[in-house]
């Protein structure tokens, strides 16, 4: 039977600068992607229906050339048509270009009926409601991050270890957003939930590491490897759950669960890197050089 053995990294072979370089490079790259996206599209990510406004129809695929019919059924060109074979539906999205999405939704579902397509679900979001939602979401993520930071500082009461946790949590948030852009995953309410979940999840292993190094007796490297054994197991377990959720939900076409799964899996992956490279090196610097100053 295969066993998971958490590998022991010999940290003594690398300098702090070398250890920090990798996560920092990835973070800079992620920020560059998001920045570039912002310059190109005017938004930091590919915003979904909830944040832009528009109409989304789920049309049943009852055999025949539904895709062909969708092409011709609507007076407006759909912005995207996606097929979800497991569920036998096509998801057709129209971005809000006008002030009356309600009327648009009615027109579109009438047009679908006339073309003999059966509509399983209709979602309509008006642009002004959407921008309100977007603001609320940004506010929510900001508030959660701030709350987490305050709590971490209160728990450890020392600057460097606390900032290490906050910095790696920040990177854990930014990297999944950049990956979303690359994979073409839209920013929806589900992904916002996933980002908040990352704040909760990713801090776990950082706290474990800090606790082990700062509050427990013993050699620094011993403490780190002890925390790693537990922390890596934790992260891998959660990742397994999320990857399975993402894959299964993708097959079934349950977008919300798929997106949450993907983002959390990416975020946890980023967390492995940030905790055991960025956080460890900051702690080592603090333990061996920072304290004596």
């Amino acid at each position: 039977m295969v066993a998971i053995e958490v590998p022991e990294i010999n940290y003594t072979e690398y300098s702090n600068r070398q250890l920090v370089a990798v996560p920092l490079a990835v973070l800079v790259l992620a920020l560059a992607i998001i920045g570039g996206w912002y310059l190109a599209t005017g938004a930091p990510a590919d915003l979904g229906l909830e944040f832009t406004g528009g109409v989304e129809l789920r049309i049943a695929d009852d055999g025949g050339d539904v895709e062909q019919q969708i092409e011709t059924a609507f007076e407006r060109q759909p912005d995207s048509v996606r097929s979800i074979p497991a569920d036998d539906v096509y998801v057709v999205t129209f971005r809000a270009a006008d002030d009356d999405p309600e009327g648009l939704a009615n027109d579109l579902s009438t047009q679908a009926d006339e073309a003999g397509l059966s509509t399983e679900a209709v979602d309509q979001v008006s642009p002004s409601f959407a921008s309100d939602t977007a603001r609320t979401a940004v506010f929510g993520v900001g508030l959660a991050f701030l709350g987490m930071s305050v709590l971490v500082f209160a728990l450890f009461r020392t600057f460097v270890p606390s900032i290490a946790v906050v910095a790696s949590a920040f990177s854990d948030l930014v990297i999944p957003v950049a990956v979303m852009n690359l994979l073409g995953i839209q920013m929806t309410l589900g992904t916002i939930a996933a980002l908040l979940m990352i704040i909760g999840y990713s801090v776990d292993s950082d706290i474990l590491l800090n606790n082990s190094v700062l509050r427990r007796t013993g050699d620094f490297y011993e403490s780190v490897s002890r925390a790693m054994r537990t922390g890596v197991t934790m992260t891998l377990t959660s990742m397994a759950a999320m990857i399975v959720m993402a894959v299964v939900a993708a097959v079934f076409g349950v977008d919300l669960l798929r997106n949450i799964g993907i983002i959390l899996a990416v975020g946890l992956c980023a967390d492995l890197m940030n905790t055991y490279l960025l956080n460890v090196s900051l702690l080592r610097w603090y333990k061996f050089e920072g304290v004596s100053r």
């Binding site: 309600e102 009327g103 299964v248 349950v254």
Partner: peptide, 28 residues
């Protein structure tokens, strides 16, 4: 229409979502 949102999900779609999420949960 101006500042609101509406969404509809058919009963059949809801029923299949129910099964799918159960399967997803168990597999996770």
């Amino acid at each position: 229409s101006g500042q609101g949102t509406s969404s509809t999900i058919s009963a059949a779609q809801g029923e299949s979502y129910k099964t799918y999420s159960l399967v997803t949960g168990i597999l996770a």
